[in-house]
């Protein structure tokens, strides 16, 4: 059945230096990159951001069409954001006037600027999820957040929840499929009708799905307890995360990059 084919996350298998980076380093680098996009004030610095991302993409060996797939669900949002900028920014010189209505050069400039920033944000975060296995991401996140567990943040529990969610997405999809078939056999119709009817048709799907999710959760909790689970205390891990040479290089490159972006705010190059 089709639901089985859904890939988890969007990991693109590979063995590049980007893939091999320690997940902790990769998460931090991605965050730094995303933040850097908000530090940028002029178009020419975006050139630097694009160059940097292009280098990462080439190194990772992930085909560009996989990366651009990430844009699809948000392209609408990006267009709206750009339109709002064009239509509502009133400062600057009018470049197009239709009756009382006008568009300014500043508006177009801001729209392009915002659009580019959003696209880079998506590409930047996609690069993290494309080159890191979901399970490595949760492990990395747990390690990064673990200092915060001293002030009460349940880092281990959050990571465990994500691990289990990843594990059970295919199971629950299968379950959904099974229930849908069973209810269709009983005369339920999930395909036809208007929005309200469709929403109503979901009830005989959701109720059994919740019941079975709770049953699975109960079974799993019992099995985990039987396998000695007792929280994160005293727990060791099979995969030890070790920082290597690539990680050091990545850290240095990132610091230099961030330095350049920040410095650009104080240097005036008047191209635009």
């Amino acid at each position: 059945m089709a639901v089985r084919d859904i890939t988890l996350g969007q990991y693109f298998p590979g063995d590049s230096c980007i893939h091999r980076l320690d997940p902790r380093v990769k998460i931090v680098c991605a965050l730094v990159y995303l933040v850097s996009l908000f530090v940028v004030r002029s178009f020419w610095v975006f050139g630097l951001c694009i160059l940097f991302l292009a280098a990462v993409i080439i190194l990772s060996g992930v085909p560009f069409r996989f990366i651009s797939k990430g844009l699809k669900p948000v392209i609408f949002l990006i267009i709206i954001t750009m339109l709002i900028n064009v239509l509502f920014i009133r400062t600057g010189d009018p470049v197009l006037t239709i009756g009382k209505f006008y568009i300014t050069n500043e508006g177009i400039y801001r729209a392009l600027f915002m659009g580019l920033r959003l696209v880079l944000l998506i590409f930047g975060s996609s690069m993290l999820t494309l080159t890191t296995k979901p399970i490595e991401l949760t492990d990395g996140m747990e390690k990064l957040l673990s200092p915060l567990s001293k002030i009460g943040l349940p880092a281990h529990e959050l990571a465990m929840m994500m691990t289990i969610a990843l594990r059970f997405i295919p199971t629950l999809l299968d379950e959904t499929d099974k229930i849908m078939k069973a209810q269709t056999a009983r005369g339920a119709d999930f395909e036809n009708g208007n929005l309200k009817e469709k929403a109503k048709a979901l009830i005989p799907l959701l109720v059994p799905l919740f019941v079975s999710a709770f049953r699975i959760a109960g079974d799993l909790a019992m099995a985990m307890e039987a396998r000695c689970y007792h929280g994160g205390k005293g727990r060791t891990r099979l995969h030890q995360m070790k920082l290597g040479r690539v990680d050091a290089v990545a850290a240095i490159v990132m610091v230099v990059y961030l330095g350049c972006v920040i410095a650009s705010r104080y240097i005036n190059i008047n191209i635009f």
Binding site: L8, I164, C228, G234, T236, R237, L238
Partner: peptide, 27 residues
Amino acid sequence: DNQLVSSIVEDDVAFGPENIGMPPEEI
């Protein structure tokens, strides 16, 4: 189905040993 914890087979097998604090090489 309801007793496997991890989305990777070997990580799942490691779950018990991890819980009892076995050293990584031993796991």
